[in-house]
Amino acid sequence: MDDNKYVTRRRGNGCSISSGRPADPSPPSWTSTTSTTSSTSPTSVPPSPPRSARTNSHVTNPKVIDMLLFKGMEELNNITEHAKQRHHIIGQYVVGNQGLVQDSGTKEKGMSDFLKKFYKSNYF
């Protein structure tokens, strides 16, 4: 995603859409409605959704972009309508893929690849 003030995306048919408001640095409103503040600080939340969007930054196929946009809107709707449960939101946006325990990096020095994977999961 661009670092523009307005979150925009070019659509497949050439026109661009806008979320209609500036990207706000304060935590999104759902953090308070779902009381996720108990498990995270408000400042750590905003990077999560853009991060997940950035994973698709290489996509150029307009059809796929359309589909991603649709899915994004659906996701946003689900969150705002409370269709998504609190622990789903925490798992996806607060905790993220790296889990609750995050290595700071200093401890990993000199560790073998095996041990790094071992600390993450049983399946490797």
């Binding site: 073998s112 071992f118 049983n122």
Partner: peptide, 23 residues
């Protein structure tokens, strides 16, 4: 957070400084 038995021993060996030669 359980792990397979041999993996635990292998990881422990590394932490204890006597790394086993299989991964």
């Amino acid at each position: 957070d359980a792990r397979d038995d041999w993996k635990i021993v292998r990881a422990l060996s590394e932490v204890a400084g006597v790394q086993l030669p299989y991964d």
